[in-house]
Simulated scan of single mutants.
Amino acid sequence: MASAEMVCVTKPRVDAVEILVEKGITSIPEKFIRPREERFTSPTPSEYGEEQVPVIDLQGLNCCEGSVEREKVLKQLAYACEEWGFFQIKQAYAALPGLITQGYGSKYIAREGATRDWRDFVYLFLQPHSRRDYAYWPSDPSDFREVVYNFSEETLKLTKSLLGAFSLNLGLPQNYLETFIVQPYQNMLINYYPRCPEPELTAGFYAHSDIGMVTLLLQETGSKALQIRKNDKWIPVLAAPGALLVNIADQIEIISNGRYKSIEHRVVADKDKPRVSIPVFCDAAPDAIIKPAPELLGRRIVNEATKVEEEMKENAKYTSIVFKNHEIAFYKDGANSKKYVQSYMLQA
């Protein structure tokens, strides 16, 4: 997700989900009920087997170029990006105690009559600093701004490191992706999913792929409310202790010409316990032109079998877009699986 036309408040609205739960409702209002064909339930273990999102230690990225440790991490990242589109990372600054706090907000979809998700939230603009409006930042707890400021700076460093690794794995210069998007724009959501009396009728968040470049998600250890779509199956993501969950977003899919895919994910509502999650989104600059990297469409490579340099040509699979147009479409119509990205695909 990104910025677009959203207004956040730091005080609960009358129709906030948390307020409804505090009233002791036993059935959910009609505006939260999804059409029958859009409802979903949690899969049983037999449905998804033992598959789980890869966990990667990024420490090797700090090693010198060409080192065994660095190459090992790059290969792990390449596998995770190509096969999953999601991975969890372990690093000292991944766990920041005291960050979780309640968040309140309103529906994010502009379209009148759209089905509501079963959640409340606070949404913050973090990077560049000129976008910040502290009038929307909670003042309780008192160190909220300091913690979020530090978290923003560290996650921005991490994101740039990941973009560098993705660039190298795609055969591009290390700073390619960061330069391609003009300037990283960073936003944060603090999601609160209250208990739901009828979870089978609604969703915490409907199926979608994130619209930007990369998302870093801080969530409660052991939570399985988040599910990702892999091989046409919905797999619950078990939140590892002290880890950030990373997922590839739409713009990476387009720039990589489909080599890396943005992955659909959703959040199920829970009848027994609430959930808090904090995603940080790295997006392209609003006016950035997003298209398949020209360097990936025509370049020379060495054939490993013959050791002869050959020219590799590949047709663009996506049309060019302006990022802010993609962003506005999402906030106008809401989560819609991957139909936005699919609409940019060119006929073969």
Rank of each mutant, 00 (worst) to 15 (best):
P138K: 01
P138R: 00
D140M: 05
S142I: 03
S142E: 14
D143I: 03
V148R: 06
N150Q: 13
L156D: 11
L156Q: 03
T159Q: 00
A165D: 11
F166E: 14
L168V: 15
L168T: 15
L168R: 14
L170A: 11
G171A: 08
L172P: 12
N175M: 05
L177W: 05
L177G: 14
E178W: 00
V182D: 10
P184D: 00
Y185R: 02
Y185D: 05
Q186Y: 01
N187C: 11
M188N: 03
M188R: 05
L189H: 14
L189G: 07
N191Q: 12
P194A: 02
P194G: 07
P197S: 08
E198K: 01
P199D: 08
P199C: 04
E200S: 06
E200D: 09
E200F: 01
L201S: 04
L201W: 00
L201P: 03
G204C: 03
G204W: 06
F205E: 07
F205A: 15
S209Y: 01
D210G: 15
V214Y: 12
T215C: 13
L218A: 14
Q219F: 04
E220K: 05
T221G: 03
T221P: 10
T221S: 12
G222K: 11
G222L: 10
S223V: 07
K224E: 15
A225I: 03
Q227A: 13
I228G: 02
R229W: 10
K230Q: 15
N231R: 15
N231P: 12
D232R: 08
K233Y: 02
W234G: 11
W234R: 04
W234I: 09
W234V: 10
P236A: 04
L238C: 01
L238F: 00
A239D: 00
A240Q: 01
P241T: 00
G242R: 04
G242N: 10
G242M: 01
L244G: 10
V246L: 12
V246R: 07
N247P: 12
N247M: 08
D250Y: 03
D250S: 14
D250V: 12
D250A: 12
Q251A: 13
E253H: 11
I255M: 11
I255L: 14
S256E: 06
G258M: 08
S262C: 13
I263S: 12
H265K: 00
R266G: 14
V268N: 06
A269F: 05
D270G: 06
D270E: 09
K271T: 11
P274K: 02
I278Q: 08
